[in-house]
Amino acid sequence: MRYGMVIDLKKCIGCHGCQIFCKTENATPPGMLWSRVFLFEFGSYPTVEKRPLPVLCMHCGVPECVNVCPTGASVKRPDGIVTVDRDKCTGCLNCLMACPYGARNLFLENVEYFPGQGLTPYEKLGYQRHTLGVVGKCDFCLHRIGKGLEPACVKNCMAKARYFGDLDDPDSEVSQLILTRVAFQASPTVRPGVAKKPEMDPSVYYLAIKRGDNAIE
């Protein structure tokens, strides 16, 4: 079993929905985004393209963040999901620095979304889930998977551009999409024209809009 995600860039319209569904699901404080959408521009007028790229923790097959964790708080589970045990995390930030995708954040303080105006009822209740001084990250909505639900970003995407499932199962939807479409894993640095499979082996695959699109890496 290896949980993974597929994001179809031909369907995605770059609306930032996934960014906010993740936020409401996980009550992340200001500035902490476990799901983000970048916008890249290629070419020169009039032959120009703008492409959104939704990113999240890649739950890498070879997670550097786990390697550098001194306390064993960061673990890669047997099902592939990379998590942080908040009881063991000391907030040393080795993992933050090691992650090439910027997927990890530190819960530093309970920051108000309306600065100087107090915490909203949502924040008061939501922030109780977090422990200050430890690292937080996308965990593929583990709490939802446990109930047989898909991650929030997958479930709510209005373009239905995101898929979730078992990469180890060749008949799963995610595996079939990777097989039948032009799929690539995102490299940590965007360098057009360089098509190289990232060594950390992300569990998130992107479906290209057209051939030659893996140049988005």
């Binding site: 996980n26 998590t83 942080v84 045990d85 908040r86 009881d87 209740l125 109780q128 889930r129 977090h130 422990t131 430890v134 690292v135 937080g136 990250k137 965990d139 583990l142 709490h143």
Partner: peptide, 9 residues
């Protein structure tokens, strides 16, 4: 046990 969910109440 991991980071999120459950405020323990």
């Amino acid at each position: 046990m991991n980071t999120s969910r459950g405020h323990g109440k």
